[in-house]
């Protein structure tokens, strides 16, 4: 495997030295491009109190291409599907090489605070979020309790 670019080394160092509040990202022992991520559910959101596991992978042409990120913990959210895939513009066409792992994870945390049912990935969830928001929020809390609180 080719040597790790300085950019990835620097980013990793900074993530360890000055971690983002509520987010932990640790590179895998065997692959420095694969990160184990834990995001805490934001306050005043239905995900509050939950710990959500994600995986993040930096592709060969990172930072020219966006990192690949996926939720491992099940989550009830209109922009995250059953496989944990995330609908977020900066992970797709709005990616900029000037963005970093920390900015991506902050955007994902912000997505938990502000679900966007008008740009859905999980259609059934988005539908309920639009027609009956309180029930959708109840479901999200229930899923958080069931899947994101037992270690």
């Amino acid at each position: 495997m080719a040597a790790l670019p300085r950019r990835i080394i620097k980013e990793t160092q900074r993530l360890m030295q000055e971690p983002v509040p509520g987010i932990s990202a640790v590179p895998d022992d065997t692959n420095a491009r694969y990160f184990h991520v834990i995001v805490t559910g934001p306050e005043d959101s239905p995900f509050e109190g939950g710990l959500f596991k994600l995986e993040l992978f930096l592709p060969e042409d990172y930072p020219m291409s966006a990192p690949k990120v996926r939720f491992i913990t099940k989550i009830y959210h209109p922009n995250i599907d059953r496989l944990g895939r995330i609908c977020l513009d900066i992970l797709k066409d709005k990616w900029s090489p000037a963005l970093q792992i920390r900015t991506v994870l902050l955007s994902i945390q912000a997505l938990l605070s502000a679900p966007n049912p008008d740009d859905p990935l999980a259609n059934d969830v988005a539908e309920l979020w639009k027609v009956n928001e309180s029930e959708a929020i109840r479901n999200a809390k229930e899923w958080t309790r069931r899947y994101a609180m037992d270690n």
Partner: peptide, 28 residues
Amino acid sequence: FCNDCWCAYFETQILQGVSTGIRCMANS
């Protein structure tokens, strides 16, 4: 940005079929 990064960025964009739509590398 440095010339090497511009070049690598353009190559990635072109491989994805983007040409006239290549934007500046800065966020948003």
